[in-house]
């Protein structure tokens, strides 16, 4: 992650309408927010729209940010709320994802890029990981992604999703159990590889 040298100064400049400061804030957090939203939504197109909306809201409401040091959590909270609103509007607990695209078609893209077998395995694993995430209820999925993929502290996650620390901790644990079941085939393989690497 690109950490801004002085977030406070950046926020102040952005509040005063400095477009370069706006851009720097996007450069700092854009990729992380997009990856979070992609994992949450399972769709590149949806994630890009949500990222765009998140930054528009964030930059327009920057004047209401009380503590500039909390900018990162604040942007994550906006992103999470944007997705949550979308879920409420759609009244469904899972959205379309890239997995609707035929697996063979995506694998073909990888073969063209080289390393055909490894690419195929990576592609299959990537699809399995996203599928496991998509199967989680939204409440568990959001905290699991923030903790495991984005590696945020439980304290920050608690602030982002607006739930108690204990609730966050329990939900992450429950999500781990459910995900472990769905990925048991890959976990066994991963454990064997880790053991081999350990011996070597």
């Amino acid at each position: 992650m690109n950490q801004a040298p002085d977030i406070r100064r950046l926020v102040d400049d952005a509040r005063n309408g400095n477009r370069e400061a706006f851009h720097s804030i996007y450069e700092c957090y854009g990729s992380r927010i997009y990856n979070f939203l992609y994992r949450l939504l399972g769709s590149r197109h949806e994630a890009e729209d949500a990222t765009q909306q998140t930054f528009l809201i964030a930059l327009n409401r920057l004047g209401t940010l009380r503590e500039p040091d909390l900018l990162e959590s604040w942007i994550y909270r906006i992103a999470r709320n944007e997705v949550y609103q979308k879920y409420r509007r759609k009244q469904v607990d899972s959205l379309e994802d890239d997995n609707s695209r035929p697996f063979a078609e995506r694998a073909e893209d990888q073969r063209i890029l080289g390393q055909p077998e490894k690419a195929l395995l990576n592609e299959e694993l990537g699809a399995a990981l996203q599928s496991a995430l998509n199967s989680l209820p939204f409440k568990l999925r959001e905290v699991f992604i923030l903790a495991v993929v984005e590696e945020m502290s439980y304290q920050d996650i608690s602030g982002i999703v607006g739930r108690s620390l204990l609730s966050v901790k329990t939900d992450i644990y429950r999500a781990r159990l459910m995900t472990k079941e769905r990925l048991s085939q890959y976990i066994g393989e991963s454990s064997r590889i880790s053991a081999r690497e350990g011996k070597a």
Binding site: S31, Y34, Y38, T51, L125, G126, L129, V149
Partner: peptide, 10 residues
């Protein structure tokens, strides 16, 4: 598996 997985870029 998740931490070593590909990160997606916009």
């Amino acid at each position: 598996l998740f931490r070593e997985a590909e990160r997606f870029e916009p």
